[in-house]
């Protein structure tokens, strides 16, 4: 295989696996936005908390990874429920800025709790073997392969869930029109709670995966903001868009690292945001988002 192509594929596949994690977190964003019209800027912090819980279960309490994972999932369901019930429900009907700001207030609290309980150091998971897999000359670590695998399984699961499961259909109905859904006998409050639970769970899984790749620290929460370009790219209210956006942003991030780095070092840190601005200028409602047409 030619070298050029190998180089491209290396970055492309790494980006794709990172992108699948982004897609997972973006799914959490979109779920909450679609059903409750809330942009949850605390998503990154929920990821971080999930990663920390899982980490401390494996390292401090000596559980095996699967058990720790299960504990984390239960914990994130509870966290999602608590957040929805205590912070967001009193604000139904308030202006956007209040709702955004509440989620930002939540970031303060979660960050404070994490620092209080776990301190400031970056810690490492050691679950997956370190040596890379050789895929026809393209080197990928197990971590990336696993991340991609887990994310793809979950994304497929949710795609099926929204298409065929009763609860999934309820959620789509609420997202479509709250009053209409309510008059059909769907409990909107329950749907809100379920959306938050699912969002917290997928973000925690995303957090654990990213934590495996980059180490678990307070900086992990920045991934939550990095996912924003992915969400905008696909449109805030499109689940398919979130998945495609996540993959695209991951790929673009790593390709920019591969090709543009010699010219502007570390450009990959902001490249997704540059794309974000461009997308906003050209298609403000994202690639798959619903364009709101307003008439006087």
């Amino acid at each position: 295989m030619p070298n050029e192509f190998l180089f491209f594929m290396q970055f492309f596949l790494t980006g794709l696996s990172m992108g699948s994690v982004y897609a997972l977190v973006a799914l959490g964003f979109v779920l909450i936005y679609k059903s409750t019209s809330i942009l949850n800027l605390a998503q990154g912090e929920i990821m971080m908390v999930g990663a920390y819980v899982c980490l401390s279960m494996t390292l401090d309490f000596g559980l095996n990874f699967m058990a720790a994972f299960a504990v984390t999932m239960v914990f994130s369901v509870l966290l999602g429920l608590a957040v929805e019930r205590l912070a967001l429900r009193p604000l139904i009907g308030e202006p956007i800025i209040s709702v955004i700001m509440v989620t930002l207030g939540l970031t303060y609290i979660l960050r404070g709790v994490v620092i209080m309980v776990w301190g400031n150091d970056i810690r490492q998971f050691n679950i997956f073997p370190q040596e890379p897999i050789d895929l026809w000359g393209i080197k990928l670590t197990y971590l990336y392969v696993w991340s991609m695998g887990i994310s793809l399984v979950l994304l497929t699961f949710f795609a099926v869930f929204f298409k065929y499961a009763r609860t999934g259909i309820f959620m789509r109905a609420v997202a479509d029109h709250q009053t209409a859904a309510q008059s059909m006998g769907i409990s909107v409050k329950r749907v809100f709670a379920i959306s938050w639970c699912i969002a917290a769970v997928v973000s925690s899984i995303g957090g654990i995966l990213v934590g495996n790749i980059a180490g678990v620290g307070v900086d992990l929460s920045h991934i939550g903001l990095k996912v924003l370009p992915a969400v905008i790219f696909g449109g805030l209210d499109s689940i398919l868009g979130a998945i495609i956006g996540g993959l695209a942003v991951g790929v673009l991030e790593f390709l920019s690292a591969g090709y543009l780095d010699p010219y502007i070092p570390a450009i990959n840190e902001v490249f997704p945001f540059i794309i974000l601005v461009l997308v906003l200028m050209i298609r403000p409602y994202g690639l798959f988002g619903i364009e709101e047409i307003e008439r006087v």
């Binding site: 509440v102 930002l104 207030g105 970031t107 609290i109 404070g112 620092i115 209080m116």
Partner: peptide
Amino acid sequence: VTWFVSLREIVFGLVIILFLIFEP
């Protein structure tokens, strides 16, 4: 040692949320 940082974050977070809920 990290008392100040974490306490500051938690209290400010609570203050923001409480203000938004009770005195928007």
